[in-house]
Structures are given as structure tokens and as C-alpha cells.
Nucleic acid binder design. Structure first.
Lengths: 208, 208
DNA sequence: TCGCTTATTAGACGCTTGCCTTATAAGCAC
DNA sequence: GTGCTTATAAGGCAAGCGTCTAATAAGCGA
């Protein structure tokens, strides 16, 4: 009968999903939203739109859109650190090789691809004015540096070397700077050149 | 008489200003707004509020808030490049000294102070999705690099030196990376340390 | 001093947002 | 199957935004 098809504005689909899956969906939609629309375009409603759920559902899983943003940031940092460690630490015996793998991972699609790279910039922006975002950012930076230190620990000490803290800080800066360069134009400075420049910087900073 | 004071919600002040002054006011308010409230908080109405004018005035001077943002970005880049050149070029005869002055200027309150530093992050964010912002960013980077090249041109060529393009790219990355570091926490990496690290990087990259 | 240009304000409109409340049904336990 | 939990949807509400229009007066040239 036509009436059953016409009268009620039938909810198109109402599949239930496990809370963990839905939360992950919303987090993923948030990253995509941030990457493609920036801070201004990332609204709670737009995130839900991308996740394919009604806008009321966000509140069911997160206190508010801001909180979803923060949790997304936390999870992204956690995941990235875990992968960095998994990729580089097994080769810590050959520091320059371990660093090279680290660089490759940093500029991989997983963390610098078009569907995610823009999100980091928004998080950094938040870190300036919001203490909770700043805390996540601080913890991330600290742990990232600690990992770098472990990676270069096996390098032989050289007489003309920089103080280790300075060398780490500079390598870290080169990474961030090239990341931005790549962010602004992957045409002008493609991924392979970024990695090559990182390698060159590592050799210069820690001795050949 | 009370009536004259009470009846009309008297416009508190309606001083006229020259178009150039008002435009400059609005641009300055935009920078301040971006720095303190980020992309999301920077609305046309908030900018006008900070500039002390009614929200209708924005439209009288700029096509829309977005356009004001773009013009602000352009002017900021122009001003910064001009100052960088004025500060460093007179000392080009002593490249390391010229670079040092350049670094000092980059991390000065004029361009990295709390009332402005956050604005750059927002502009970078825009550059990713908006072609007009990307064009400004590209031009700025190009000219900044050209200036760096002129500054180090007088350095003696060394046998073990990096290709000049690589060295410039790395120095540029160090600058951007430390700038972010400073942006994220001027406590952890204070201004003087940023400049010192830049100096160290320059010595390493271009030979002592 | 008068009048014209235009800088400036104020208000209305439609839209979107975040928040909240209510209604519905999906899927598990029994 | 039946019933309860709860994931999900949908709509209402106030507030804020960008855009536009109309009204006002500031300050200059005559």
C-alpha cells in the first residue's frame, strides 16, 4: 500500500552499533572534518552528518562537541606515538636507520595524508588558548622527544658534537618545520624530499 | 532636562575617521581577535566589537569578513618581510651576524608576541583549503627564502657543505619548527633559546 | 553659514549552531 | 516470542552569525 511508504518520514536506517564502534566513527568523522573544513567548519552537526548519524547522537557519547575534539586529539597522539615506536625502536641498534624509518612514518599518509594533516594544525591552534589541549600537546611533545633520545642513544659521542639536548631540539624543529612545509605545499616539497632533508639534518646534527 | 538624556539611546560616539585609519583599525582588531580567540572566535561582529565600531561598518570597508581576513594576512606578510629585510640586509657583509639579527626579529614581540603569534596558525590553516590564502602563503615563503639566500651569499664555499638549496630549506625548517615550539610553550623554549638554537643550526649547516 | 557627501549606526531577516527533551525501535535476556 | 534496556532520531529553543537596508549626522567645500 502506498500509505505505508508515504505517510511517516521513515527513518532511513537505524542500525544499532556497539558503543565503541560509534565512538570510533565519530572520532574518525571529526578528524576528516577538521582536515577538510578546518576549525570553523568543524561543528557538531557537521561531524554527525559525516558520520551518518543524527545530531542528537553526539551528546549521547560525548559531553559536547569540544569534548569530542579533545578526545580525538588524545587518541590521535596516542596512536601516532605507538606507531612511531613500533616502527623505529626495533632498529635502534642502527640509529640512522631507525631515524630514517621514523621520518618515513611521520610523513606517511597515516599521519600526513590529505585526510588528516589539516587536523593537527587545528589542534595546535586550540593548544594556545585551551589548557586541556595544551596538556595533551605537552605530553605528546615530551614523549616524542623521549623516543628520539632513545633512538640516538647508541650513537658514538663525538668531540665536536652539539649538546645532546640541543641536537634533539633541532632535529625536532626540523621535523616540525618540514612538516609545515609539506602541509603548505606537498607539490613544492614532496614527501621524499622531506625525508631526505631529515636524513641530511640528522647526519649533520649527530656527526656522519 | 532629563528627556534629552533618557529618550534616545544616544549613539555614544560617532567620530569620523579617515578611511585609511579605520581600515587599519579593523585589520589590527582582526589580528588581535585571531591571536586570542582563534579561527572559531574570529567573527565579523567580534572584530567590530574589538575595533569599537558597529558591525555594519565592516561591510562598508570590506566585502565580507573573509576578505578582511585575507587582506590582514597580506598586510602582515608584507610588513614582516619589510622589517626582516630592513633588519638583516644592512649587515649582509657578515652573514652570521645578519642571520642572528634576522632570528632576533623573527622571535620579537612584533611577530611572535602573544598578541599576534596565534594569528599565523589560523592563516596557515586557511592556506590549506583556500587558494587565495595559499597564494599569499606561497609568495611569502618564496620571498623569505630569497632573503635568506641573499644573506648567506657572502659565505665562503666549503668542500663538505650541503647543496645551498638544502641548507636554506633546512634553516627555514628550523626557523618554522622552533617558531612552533615557541608558539606551543614560550615557557619550555623561551625566546633566547630559540635564537641560540637558530644560531647553532646556521653554524652547523653552513660550516663554522 | 549652508548643503552635500559619506562614514557610521541600528535594526530586520534567514540561517546555523549547541543544547535539551521527547518519542521510537533495535537487539539482547529470558 | 516477550519485555526491558538503551542506542538513535527528531524537533523545539535561544543565541549568534552574515547579509542587507534604511536612517542619521559628521565634517568638508562653498
Amino acid at each position: 500500500m502506498a500509505s505505508t511508504a508515504l505517510k511517516p518520514p521513515v527513518p532511513p536506517r537505524r542500525r544499532r552499533a556497539s558503543p565503541l564502534v560509534r565512538r570510533a566513527d565519530l572520532v574518525a568523522a571529526t578528524v576528516s572534518c577538521l582536515a577538510h573544513l578546518g576549525a570553523k567548519g568543524t561543528t557538531g552537526r557537521e561531524i554527525c552528518r559525516r558520520a551518518g548519524v543524527s545530531h542528537g547522537l553526539l551528546r549521547h557519547y560525548f559531553r559536547n562537541p569540544d569534548n569530542l575534539l579533545l578526545e580525538t586529539y588524545e587518541q590521535l597522539c596516542e596512536d601516532m606515538l605507538a606507531q612511531m615506536e613500533a616502527v623505529a625502536m626495533p632498529h635502534a641498534a642502527d640509529p640512522l636507520d631507525a631515524l630514517h624509518r621514523y621520518f618515513l612514518a611521520v610523513f606517511s599518509d597515516d599521519w600526513a595524508g590529505p585526510d588528516i594533516i589539516g587536523a593537527w594544525m587545528v589542534f595546535w591552534q586550540q593548544a594556545r588558548s585551551r589548557a586541556d589541549f595544551a596538556a595533551v600537546s605537552d605530553s605528546f611533545n615530551l614523549r616524542q622527544r623521549a623516543l628520539l633520545e632513545r633512538l640516538v642513544a647508541a650513537l658514538p659521542a663525538r668531540a665536536d658534537a652539539l649538546p645532546m639536548a640541543d641536537a634533539i631540539a633541532l632535529l625536532s624543529a626540523v621535523l616540525d618545520g618540514l612538516w609545515i612545509e609539506y602541509y603548505l605545499s606537498d607539490q613544492r616539497t614532496p614527501r621524499e624530499r622531506c625525508v631526505a632533508l631529515c636524513d641530511a639534518a640528522a647526519r649533520r646534527l649527530f656527526g656522519v
